[in-house]
């Protein structure tokens, strides 16, 4: 079996303020195999971006991280800053949402790209320039040589995102953290960027953490998926298994929300309510206020149960994992029908 490229173990984030600490992320654990594209989905505020920034150690100093982030056999959270800096943009690249804003408006993309190249490779100006052209070519920018003199505002969002990806891969990237890289792009461009990431991962054996709120997009791209809810991972599993038989009620709700183009005009059921904000999480299961299956036992601390590459944080679903009677519990019987009525009214 391939060795994991990244192991995140019990990652916890706390916002330390004068008024007291607020937990932002609790006990997030997952592994990304080398060469794997791993999806992280969830609503806004579920802690997806925080997870990526914690791996990169780019969180503001007011947020304290505990747990372990193991990359290349070392715990990133324990590394001194200067060693972390030699990994950032070198072994670990990161791509952000809003690509136009993520590029410096006052420098040409050539200057920015050459800077990224020279941050980790001792190259002469000329060689770095050639490497920058090579990178632009790699991410599919036509006429890369002449594009070096362009400013970010002269590019479209999709082109800027390609440049961002080229910059993130300017070192010797083994892991790419892609934080909603397609959110601000139109659907066609979205598809191009997704295909580009897929190709780069395959050609260069790069592992990718793909963060998105778009389950359909993640399903198309990723080998495995983790579902985040209110600062926790509620379910982790292989894409096919997770989509066909979602175990956690929240995952089930998400899967039901994905539009089905074969049934145009049919409104999909949503999940009623909004996720609780950090600091307002209920004890026990954090989804219980919105869960159609909530009942006795949901107030207790939820343990994750794992079986056959599947992790789920729900005692009811956990029981179903154990009895392997997955089909029965996942068919929408009593709860989800009420749910559909709630959202369409």
């Amino acid at each position: 079996m391939r060795a994991p490229a990244l192991i995140v173990e019990n990652l916890r984030l706390k916002l330390c303020a004068d008024r007291g600490d607020t937990t932002l992320l609790s006990d997030v654990s997952f592994e990304i195999q080398s060469g794997e594209i791993f999806g992280l989905v969830g609503e806004s505020g579920s802690g997806k971006t925080l997870t990526a920034l914690a791996i990169m150690r780019l969180l503001p100093p007011t947020i304290k991280a505990t747990g372990k982030v193991i990359f290349d056999g070392v715990d990133l959270l324990a590394l001194p800053e200067y060693q972390m800096r030699s990994l950032r943009g070198n072994r670990i690249g990161m791509v952000f949402q809003e690509p136009v804003a993520a590029l410096n408006p006052t420098f040409t993309i050539g200057t920015q790209l050459i800077c990224a190249v020279r941050a980790h490779h001792k190259l002469s100006g000329h060689k770095a320039r050639e490497r920058a052209i090579e990178l632009l070519d790699m991410v599919g920018i036509p006429e890369p040589r002449s594009r070096l003199g362009f400013y970010p505002h002269q590019f479209s969002g999709g082109m800027c995102q390609r440049v961002m990806i080229a910059m993130a891969l300017a070192g010797d990237a083994r892991l790419l953290l892609a934080d909603e890289p397609t959110t601000s792009l139109d659907v066609t461009t979205q598809d191009e960027i997704v295909r580009l990431l897929e190709r780069l991962s395959k050609d260069h054996g790069i592992s990718v953490l793909f963060i998105s709120h778009d389950l359909g997009l993640v399903a198309r791209l990723c080998h495995r998926i983790a579902v985040a809810y209110a600062g926790e991972l509620v379910e982790v599993g292989h894409t096919d298994a997770l989509l066909q038989t979602p175990l956690h009620p929240y995952t089930r709700g998400l899967v039901r929300c994905v539009p089905d183009l074969t049934q145009i005009g049919v409104l999909r059921g949503g999940i009623p309510g909004t996720p609780p904000m950090p600091g307002h999480w209920p004890g026990g299961c954090r989804f219980q206020q919105r869960c159609p299956l909530a009942g006795n036992g949901c107030d207790d601390a939820q343990v994750t149960s794992s079986l056959a590459d599947r992790t789920v944080r729900c005692w009811k679903s956990a029981a179903s994992v154990d009895t392997a009677s997955i089909e029965n519990t996942t068919s929408p019987t009593n709860g989800p029908k009420n749910l559909a009525r709630n959202t369409t009214s």
Binding site: R88, E98, A101, N104, A119, A170
Partner: peptide, 12 residues
Amino acid sequence: SYIRTAWALGLS
């Protein structure tokens, strides 16, 4: 955002 990018690129 672009300065966050610069940190993420490992610049000094």
